[in-house]
Nucleic acid binder design. Structure first.
Length: 173
DNA sequence: TAAGTGATCTCT
DNA sequence: GAGATCACTTAA
């Protein structure tokens, strides 16, 4: 029996959920094969007040899905080259998402999407078995002692207050 | 350390 | 419609 994380899991506090995602498994069905990677690095983006979040400038066609209820994917394109994979969290009208930066042996958010074959077609879709991409609990809770918090990466433009917030969570080996 | 690359957003 | 910006990676 799979324990696929659904909107119930993703409806609470963004920061707490980010931390809880460590040690969960990102699962992808590709070409009939199942790829499961343990999530070991995430970043939280929470609310319109978070200057580093796409939602800080209000609702746009790109970030619209961040305003939906938790449980959907937010996939977008940056730097003309890279796809980023985020999971939407929080209640409706509260824009928040968690960027999955690393899982398994894959380090780096764009490398992850490239490896899994994730692109814009997943945007706004629910994370579920039918989608071919979801997150599941395999009953191995992350060791709290191995969790490290640091500031987020690549968000210097957000100003000191927000770029220095320890919203990045890493699960050490 | 810097260039690549193109969608998106903010002005006109 | 033009110009700037960007939740990154790779090659040097």
């Amino acid at each position: 029996m799979r324990r696929i994380l659904d909107e119930k899991f993703f409806s609470g506090d963004t920061i707490k959920i980010a931390e809880k995602l460590l040690g969960k498994y990102l699962v992808r069905i590709k070409g009939g094969e199942e790829i499961a990677l343990e999530i070991n690095e995430v970043e939280a983006y929470d609310g319109v007040h978070d200057k580093a979040s796409h939602a800080s400038k209000g609702r746009t066609s790109r970030n619209e899905v961040m305003f939906a209820r938790g449980g959907a994917w937010y996939v977008y394109f940056v730097y003309g080259i890279h796809w980023m994979l985020n999971i939407v969290v929080g209640e409706e009208e509260h824009p928040a998402a968690i960027l999955i930066r690393g899982a398994g042996k894959i380090s780096g958010p764009a490398r992850l999407t490239k490896y899994l074959g994730v692109d814009g077609t997943f945007n706004k879709k629910m994370a579920a078995l039918e989608t071919g991409l979801w997150i599941e609990d395999r009953g191995e809770p992350a060791d709290k002692k191995k969790i490290v918090q640091t500031p987020r990466i690549g968000v210097d433009y957000a100003g000191e207050e927000w770029s220095l917030k320890p919203y990045r969570f890493i699960l050490k080996d």
